[in-house]
Design a protein around this nucleic acid. Sequence first.
RNA 1: GCCGGUGUAGCUCAGUUGGCAGAGCGACUGACUUGUAAUCAGUAGGUCAGGGGUUCAACUCCCUUCACCGGCUCCA
Length: 648
Amino acid sequence: MSVTVRLPDGKATEVSGAQSAFETIAQVDPALAKASLVARMDSRLVDLSTVPREGSTIEPVTNGDPEALEVYRHSSAHLLAAAVLELFPGAKLGIGPALMNDPKGGFFYDFKRDEPFTPEDLASIEERMRALVKKNLPYRRIEMGKAEALERFSQDELKCHLIGEKGDAVASFYTLGDHFIDFCRGPHIPSAGRIRAFKLLSVAGAYWLGDEKGPPMQRIYGQSFFTREEMEDWLKQREEAEKRDHRRLGRELDLFSIQDEYGAGLVFWHPKGGLIRRAIEDFTRDELERRGYGLVFTPHIAQHSLWVKSGHANFYSDAMYAPMAIDEIEYQLKPMNCPFHIGIFAARQHSYRDLPIRLAELGTVYRYERSGVMHGLMRVRGFTQDDAHHFCTPEQARAEVLGCLEFALHVYRTFGFQYTVELSVRDPKNPAKYLGDDAMWSMAEENLALALEELALPYQRMEGEAAFYGPKIDIKVVDAIGRAWQLGTVQFDFNLPERFRIEYIGEDNRPHRPIMIHRALFGSLERFFGILVEHFAGAFPLWLAPVQVSVLPITEKQNDYAQRVREQLSGSRLRAEADLRGEKIGAKIRHAQLQKVPFMLVCGAREAESDTVAVRERHRGDLGAMRVDEFAARARSLVEARSLELNL
RNA sequence: GCCGGUGUAGCUCAGUUGGCAGAGCGACUGACUUGUAAUCAGUAGGUCAGGGGUUCAACUCCCUUCACCGGCUCCA
């Protein structure tokens, strides 16, 4: 038997007589074989114990290989399950995949067991895992026919379900130690001794197959890395993310609150959070006007019949609050702004010469979120959307999409976000799912793609991810610590224009149905604000900072001077405070520092005599003395430029 | 909604087998008059999440409601 071995440097060698992928590699480079975790055989990952096929190409896969970590973590999950089965023999196995780039961890395993796992159990499971690593237990692959597998696992309903659904003619299983065997595609690392750094993180509830009607499972999350250092770095990063938690910073910086006695998921914006929100709103409104949007306002409630007409009462009722009767007519708190904007469009007749019409609103909507899913500002029951709808002709669609995208990118860059783009189109295999005719869909998908290409924006095409009413572009932003957040969306809507029968009069003097494009840049202002807090870790750029400058007199003798400086700054439209407490300068600085105030202006006797201030910048510290008017002018220009930096 | 956990002063958290409610920070008052991340002293601040029960006695035990935290298929 002859097999080709290809090494990472690209060198290929012909080898014969090897019984396993490991031996094959070892014939060329024994050290590399030992370092390998799995092998790639004809571009598929396989166990090192796999018997090579005649004529196949084998490549070693080591730590350095991007795919290796996923296998390693999957094997870590099996290690977890093996330990659990030794300690808790009655537990039944669910699924146990590897997770990549998930803040929750690097792997998990689901178990079905009557008793809950306690935090103390986690510690003993982890200890057992270490013992199994020490024993260097091998991961063994067992293959059997599907029928045989179903027979052998007939006691295990969950596994039979998976085997029935996923198994090919041959089903594969892996064992680890004497107690663990699970249906698993593999591949796995050769033995548990290779797992160097791991940690169990938490235990949580989950449903079998994510289905609420299915049996409840207990999920144990863990993380693993090739080295201890990587593990520690990850834990540190996690701590860093915790420090940025908008719920914590929201309280510490007095930005907002959510008060359970007034309602879960309902946000109270405090003055400081309100200032930031207004800065964001002013920015968007300026941009909207500049870009030819009409700014509109619509009511919070409307007759329920409107939502019947729009279809929301049908397919969206789960998220809608119950209607209320007013004068025996049912009214509905709005979960969306779209029907109202349609109402404005339809309030008068339009010529094709009027188009495109762009209507924008910061519209507050209310949606029912189930009690367990609320999360700070990220998931709430009442929020304000930066919502807009474009009504245009098919010929104008591309320019409108382009305008939306340019707008979105401008906004995200202003806040210092990176971004990635997805284009969601129809599932060609399931045409019945979608509303509207083929030609419309093709036009829309093409225009979305062309606009992306015109901007040279790299994007991922998501087949079958379009909504039933139209294709869309989604933009995800990436924050300062690399987390992705779904924010912007540009969607075609073929449903509402049809349902409301809106029209414009075309050049041919006949009525036509306009194209409707729905777009949002922030999605929800509440959520966007939460993301911003975490992105900046509460240290907002000058144009957003609720307190931009804090004036700090060294002793009470400079209090009057500090007040005058503060007034002068306010006169220059800078948001300034003076700290007149009877504290030492160190304490005042610490206070301003913890409040993440961008500039601190220290005034002692020297400064008071010369109309200057000693400027201290949040991150860089003391910058030396500067005339007050000069500081004000420079700070103003930073504000006007919406600078992300504090370089005076 | 479901699984697990948590709920004590504005914040972070102690509080033994059921037996008088605690600390640090913060707030307030006073003294100090201070030069780049915490001056000292004093004072106030609590329906122990809400409701019900067991008990001579409940922050503590039981039931229940509410809220919050972690999670609820990136496929065996």
